[in-house]
Nucleic acid binder design. Structure first.
Lengths: 209, 209
DNA sequence: GCTTTTCCTTGACAACTGTCCAAGATTCTT
DNA sequence: AAGAATCTTGGACAGTTGTCAAGGAAAAGC
């Protein structure tokens, strides 16, 4: 009897938790969009609420405070972003194909998800000032590094050679290129972006022996 | 007579302008320190004034508005930062010396001027959201690129070869490394920074044929 | 259908923001 | 030394911020 009651209560509790979590991520997504639009410095709770279908008060029902909310939004970002190149790696049969499709995807997400990417860089930078972001940022950064490494090490494999640098260096090189391309993309300088696109294959080749 | 009066007035006017400019840069420097300490998102005019010897009202006597003030501070930053490696280049007589001294200077300023550097990245990122910063940011970025190029092209010359990539790619590669090293430095992970230091010479060699 | 729990809105709060201004303090001119 | 120009202060302003709580709306449980 108690067992039945328990499992029933459990089911109820679980359902409530699920619902709670669902709404949390829903609000976190709204937060993500607001952050991507305005940047960290200008994002307020009322603005976030306006990008959702709720009023601003509800945010404190689902989140302890603003930091909690933004942290959750950052985690949402990670879910979106970190496996982007995996299918490219999976379907590649020749080094040339892998390189070309990687470059294509690279510049595709650059313009497609530009606001999300600038948000990521904004938050990573925020972590230079606010230590409470650092753990999450470092974790995401390491996932991005691993993602890049899967591409480059596979590329080296296909070319029957080895990467020329460590995962860390490989990552920061490509990330540096991405960051600058993003700046010029948002500054509306397509020529510069095109130039960088032209150079990227050469850089990739530089990254393997 | 009018001429004498004019030149005298001119002198007075010039002195006033000089004084005005001197105080402007004085306040811009205070702004720079505040920004480096708190980051863009948390820097207020009253906080800036507290880092100077004046009250907050004076800022609007010397600057049109907050943007004007911050823009001036950014220009101050540039004056500090953009010729850092020039003497290293000037005194280098062998490729090994140039490379070693560059690496040393690289990691020296990383820890010495860490807060200033994080400010730079903060403002560069801010320009992804606020177009009114972009012109200044792009200009400073191009100066940084030129600075790095002077080092690498000279290094190639000393080694009797050529740079392997364009100035832009060369810059973003080293800047990406710097940025990540800065993150780990501020996160208090000296091991990671040391690792990156160990790898930097190899990267430099990768950047020339 | 009624009660209890969960969810959401609304308005208030204190603190903080950029901006402006009146009036005092300081410096310069004559 | 007196008057004029310049500089600086400190307070007021309107608007925004994160936070919270009282109470209504909706849903769930019985």
């Amino acid at each position: 009897m108690t067992q039945v009651a328990d499992s029933k209560q459990d089911r109820i509790a679980r359902r409530q938790v699920d619902k709670f979590e669902a709404r949390r991520t829903e609000l976190a997504v709204a937060t993500l969009h607001t952050l991507a639009e305005l940047g960290y410095a200008r994002t307020s709770l009322r603005e976030i609420a306006q990008n959702s279908e709720f009023s601003h008060g509800v945010l404190h029902y689902y989140f302890a405070d603003k930091r909690d909310l933004i942290t959750e939004a950052v985690r949402q970002y990670e879910a979106v972003c970190v496996t982007r190149y995996d299918e490219v790696v999976a379907r590649a049969t020749s080094p040339g194909q892998l390189r070309d499709e990687f470059v294509a995807m690279f510049f595709d997400t650059l313009s497609e998800d530009a606001t999300l990417h600038r948000l990521w860089y904004d938050l990573r930078n925020q972590s230079l000032f606010d230590s409470s972001f650092r753990a999450d940022v470092l974790e995401i950064d390491s996932h991005r590094e691993a993602m890049v490494w899967r591409v480059i090490s596979r590329y080296a494999e296909l070319r029957d050679t080895e990467p020329a640098t460590s995962p860390a260096t490989t990552y920061v090189t490509l990330d540096g290129i991405f960051q600058r391309a993003l700046l010029h993309h948002l500054t509306d300088r397509p020529e510069t972006v095109a130039e960088m696109r032209g150079e990227l294959p050469g850089v990739i080749d530089l990254l393997v022996r």
